[in-house]
């Protein structure tokens, strides 16, 4: 699954460690999601969406669907 997490994080000036702390996960987890090596669980995806005040589908895009941008 593709995602816009790295860009959204950068827009807010957060480091991976900052985001990891806000999500209560490890920095390795944030990095693995950003590099698309790991797809988060639904609860974590909701937590991410809530943090960025966006819908899940605005952050995560299935591989078969074209990203809006």
């Amino acid at each position: 699954m593709k995602n816009h997490l790295r860009g959204l994080r950068a827009e807010r000036g957060w480091s991976q460690a900052d985001l990891a702390e806000k999500l209560d996960v490890s920095r390795q987890t944030v990095n693995a999601i950003e590099t698309e090596k790991y797809d988060p669980s639904l609860p974590l995806a909701f937590k991410i969406a809530e943090l960025f005040q966006m819908k899940i589908e605005e952050i995560f895009v299935p591989n078969h669907r074209q990203s809006p941008d």
Binding site: D24, V25, S26, Q28, T29, A32, Y38, P40, S41
Partner: peptide, 8 residues
């Protein structure tokens, strides 16, 4: 106490 990726 680990997060989901660490458990995986």
């Amino acid at each position: 106490s680990m997060d989901e990726l660490q458990r995986r």
